[in-house]
């Protein structure tokens, strides 16, 4: 039984954690480039230099004494996001969506006092959420207003699009839709819904929550499959260009669609998770092997995108057996 599943997963080309680490991240991601993605401040700078759009950086909080001067840092902004520069897995991210006289409201409309904010900042600076527990800095970023087109598929929070980019080729993509269960966060392990995206045309397949299929968004009641992601060409092109920006061979690119600014790169991930396979109901390995077999045939990001969209979007192979609308 165990051996059967083992062989089944292997035949389906599912990528396991050991294989991702041993065969891809350790092999294609040089350690000296890691700080470029692990440190979100550095990453944002690099992407900006390359002309790739990112959410605005409001302030960087490095010292504990700064935490009590929040007004000076955020000015009169009513909404912003606090992130640990070296955080992982979405930990330590605090989203402020409104501001009253003495307090703030977070994405769940829960009350956040000024002291709470300051305490959160000191925790971030102390390294509570950083990868190795090292001292960190807190990043205050402008809040993204997601494209209203997405409104039917999200509960609070900001849905994002994850693209796995291997050697510069987009190989798989999904959108992560926040739910009430995920407290508005776009993290699958916190309860968000993942939905695979057809690379060719940017149309979603059905959704997955945990390990089960989801046809309808539990909070909005809308059908998940068949949703056409706006600006798909731009998204693919941005994702592919990240390869040149940070030189990591195996990369997760997280993109959000802003109402006013269009697609923005939220962050990059040098160790992207494997749940994207569940959301797409498809293993990653055959796609990765196909890219490896290409060698260095296409140099330009646009060429690579074209190749990927041609190769990886076959609706015939849609695991849900649905032809996108």
């Amino acid at each position: 039984m165990i051996l059967g599943t083992f062989g089944g997963l292997r035949r389906a080309g599912v990528l396991g954690l050991n294989c991702r680490n041993g065969g891809y991240t350790l092999k294609y991601n040089q350690r000296r480039f890691y700080p470029l993605v692990d440190d979100k401040v550095l990453c944002k700078q690099r992407l900006k230099e390359r002309g790739l759009p990112v959410p605005d950086l409001i302030a960087v909080v490095e010292f504990n004494r700064q935490t009590s001067q929040l007004e000076e840092l955020v000015g009169d902004r009513r909404e912003f996001v606090i992130k640990p520069a070296n955080g992982s897995g979405g930990n330590g991210i605090l989203v402020i969506t409104d501001r009253k006289a003495d307090y703030f409201l977070d994405s769940d409309s829960k009350l956040v006092l000024k002291e709470d904010l300051a305490h959160h900042l000191t925790n971030v600076i102390g390294g509570l959420y950083s990868l190795g527990g090292q001292p960190d800095v807190a990043m205050i970023e402008s809040l993204v207003h997601f494209d209203p087109l997405f409104g039917q598929l999200t509960y609070h929070g900001v849905p994002d699009i994850r693209v796995i980019v291997f050697k510069g080729y987009p190989v798989m993509s999904m959108t992560r839709l926040p739910t009430r269960m995920s407290h508005g966060k776009a993290n699958l392990h916190q309860g968000a819904i993942g939905a695979g995206i057809n690379l060719t045309n940017g149309v979603t397949f059905g959704g997955v929550s945990g390990n089960s299929l989801v046809e309808i968004h539990p909070d909005t009641g809308h059908r998940i499959a068949g949703f056409r992601i706006p600006n798909w060409d731009r998204i693919m092109s941005m994702a592919a260009q990240c390869y040149e920006a940070v030189e990591l061979g195996y990369l997760g690119v997280d993109i959000v669609l802003d109402r006013d600014h269009g697609p923005l790169i939220l962050e990059l991930n040098a160790r992207p998770g494997l749940n994207i396979q569940l959301a797409n109901r498809r293993g990653l390995r055959s796609r990765l092997s196909a890219v490896e077999a290409l060698g260095s045939r296409y140099e330009l990001p646009e060429q690579r995108v074209q190749w990927s969209r041609r190769t990886f979007g076959d609706p015939q192979a849609d695991p849900f057996g649905e032809t996108p609308a």
């Binding site: 165990i2 083992f6 389906a12 954690l17 050991n18 294989c19 057996g321």
Partner: peptide, 24 residues
Amino acid sequence: LGRYTGFRLNELSRFRQLAAGSHK
């Protein structure tokens, strides 16, 4: 063991729906 790149036991259940033959 450091070069073992096969599946972990818990991945068998995590990805079981992707196993060949388990979906249409």
